[in-house]
Write a protein that binds this DNA or RNA. Structure first.
Lengths: 260, 260
DNA sequence: TGAGCATAATTGGTATGCCAATACACCAAA
DNA sequence: TTTGGTGTATTGGCATACCAATTATGCTCA
């Protein structure tokens, strides 16, 4: 089946946006301009912009114009602009470092703003996690449950910052893992739950800092926790793997640890 | 911003497809049927079906009809969802606070890893920005150029952290502004370029800290810069506006300033 | 009675005109 | 000089008409 006309026009517009290197935020030529240039009706151009709008490339404002949100460099239509998604494979160590920078800052912010309700939710989650790890028989379902609890913990920390965007950013960074084939290969090798028990201790330390409203301490504890995760993954990695991302696997001088 | 009419119609169609339990492969009612039922024009229905087509729900065949591919139940992450275009309005102050938390942490990380090339790119950008602000006649195009330079500056800082995800997160937070009608109303009131000259001084301070590889200083400088932006917007805000987001317009005790 | 063909009806695709929201320029008053 | 009001132009939104592809129907002939 021939491609829809609006799809052809949308592709041409996208290509032009990339080539002309429009700066996000600028107003694009009008629908009438494109209709004249491409020698089609405004209807076709409108339908093309519906597509670009849904894909997250543009924002359309009645009476004002059409504004570029990004330059259409991402070609994956599945990518909402808000999502932390890169086409390239982000190595697990690079991802962990980003989380170190961002989530430790969020933990500091959370330490200042945490509520009693937040503390209670965190305590309950850690208790469930503790009981789960104490169970004798470890199964795949248990591993997934543990992973979900881990995610829940980090999101509760972010929620304690009382900021929707910090929460969303944390969620996206967390979910970014599932897009990394390398991370998934590493993750499958974590079968020894002793690692998870160590991380639970890290979670306890983070919670203690939040209870004390100790911003620097929470920052430090979250950084250390993710450093432990990094070290675990490094220990499990095949550093001879050509796809090994080796991203900052040596913590740079001046890290949070050195800041204390 | 009110939701687009085609989005409302698309939602209604999707809901109907789910409730009526259409079997994939069957032909749906015609565009004219929906137009009559929803009392809108065929144009709106067509635009709604463009959306459903892009989302992968239907297939449209000229002269034949519209056929269901699935019943809109899928949560396939590869499929963009309504959330892309009906994002709740994040207040500009909440957004700025999130940026304070994240971008100051990124600035600290950048101070440790910044390269000579990063420094040079930042210096060149600030020089162009300085020349632009020195120009006599300030126009809308100049404002857009200044805004693009501002964005570029923040992205170069993030790039200096040598981490793709930190860079992407910064870009997304920046671009998030364009989704906030409230932010845009505030931003339009910034016609006095004296604010922008103040902010250029803040940028100079940040760059100085990066040059010294002063992580704490860079953190502090970025925090202060965004605090200045927050204060400017607050001064320009109509606090009697019922949509005023008032998010943390009083910086909480224990902010970065207090951390020094 | 069935196949083939012509025509009409139905359906989606596109073009055009008008409406409504926004932007901008200009002018008058303070 | 600044600010507010007004009128005009510009822009997207929507409705309607017409075009093109497909399907359905009726008629004719073998």
């Amino acid at each position: 089946m021939a491609q829809r006309q609006y799809q052809l026009i949308a592709e041409r517009i996208k290509r032009e946006l990339t080539e002309a290197r429009y700066i996000p935020g600028t107003r694009l030529p009008t629908e009438r301009d494109y209709a004249e240039r491409f020698e089609v009706s405004r209807t076709v151009v409108r339908e093309a912009f519906i597509m670009l709008e849904i894909e997250g490339h543009v924002e359309v404002r009645k009476g004002s114009g059409t504004y570029l949100l990004d330059a259409g460099q991402q070609d994956d239509p599945s990518t909402p602009t808000m999502s932390v998604v890169s086409q390239e494979d982000i190595g697990p160590f690079e991802l962990l470092h980003a989380r170190q920078v961002i989530e430790s800052a969020i933990a500091a912010s959370a330490a200042r703003l945490v509520t009693r309700h937040d503390i209670q939710a965190l305590q309950e989650l850690l208790e469930r996690e503790r009981l789960s790890l104490a169970a004798e028989h470890q199964t795949t379902a248990k591993a997934e449950e543990s992973d979900a609890a881990d995610r829940g913990f980090h999101l509760l920390i972010a929620r304690a910052s009382q900021n929707t965007l910090l929460h969303d950013t944390t969620a996206q960074l967390w979910d970014q893992r599932h897009r990394s084939p390398m991370w998934q290969r590493l993750h499958e090798r974590i079968k020894d739950f002793s690692y998870r028990r160590d991380w639970l201790e890290d979670h306890d330390v983070i919670l203690a800092r939040l209870k004390k409203r100790d911003a620097d301490g929470a920052h430090q504890a979250m950084w250390n926790h993710l450093e432990h995760v990094k070290q675990t993954l490094f220990a499990l990695s095949d550093t001879d793997d050509p796809n090994f991302d080796g991203y900052l696997f040596v913590t740079p001088e001046g890290s949070a640890t050195a800041r204390s």
